[in-house]
C-alpha cells in the first residue's frame, strides 16, 4: 500500500501500525513525536493499535526547543 509520509509517497506493507511506521522511518525521539493521520492527531497510546490504510497521509511533528 502507498502512504504519504511528510509529503513523500512511499510503498509499505499492508496494514502496518503507526508504531511500525515510526520504526521504519527512523523517527528521532519516537516517544515524544506527535503523529497526525489524514489531518487528525493520533493519541500516542494508540500508535500500536492504529493500522494505516492505503492512501493515508501521515505527518510527524517534532519538538524543537531551540531559539536563542
Amino acid at each position: 500500500m502507498k502512504i504519504t509520509v511528510a509529503g513523500e509517497t512511499k510503498e509499505f506493507d499492508d496494514g502496518i501500525s503507526v508504531s511500525k511506521l515510526i520504526e521504519l522511518e527512523n523517527v528521532e525521539t519516537p516517544q515524544y513525536v506527535t503523529v497526525s493521520v489524514n489531518e487528525e492527531f493520533v493519541d500516542s497510546g494508540a500508535f500500536g493499535s492504529t493500522a494505516l490504510k492505503d492512501g493515508d497521509n501521515v505527518e510527524f511533528l517534532y519538538f524543537m526547543g531551540g531559539g536563542r
Binding site: T29, Y32, F41, F63, G65, G66, G67
Partner: peptide, 26 residues
C-alpha cells in the same frame, strides 16, 4: 499545546546548546 500536550522531560529532547544550530537558521 494542541500539537504538543506537555513539555518533554528534562534532557529528553536536545536543545541548541547541546546539539548545535547552524547560524543562518535563526
Amino acid at each position: 499545546r494542541c500539537i504538543f500536550k506537555n513539555p518533554p522531560p528534562k534532557d529528553a529532547v536536545p536543545t541548541c546548546k547541546q546539539a548545535g544550530v547552524i547560524g543562518a537558521m535563526g
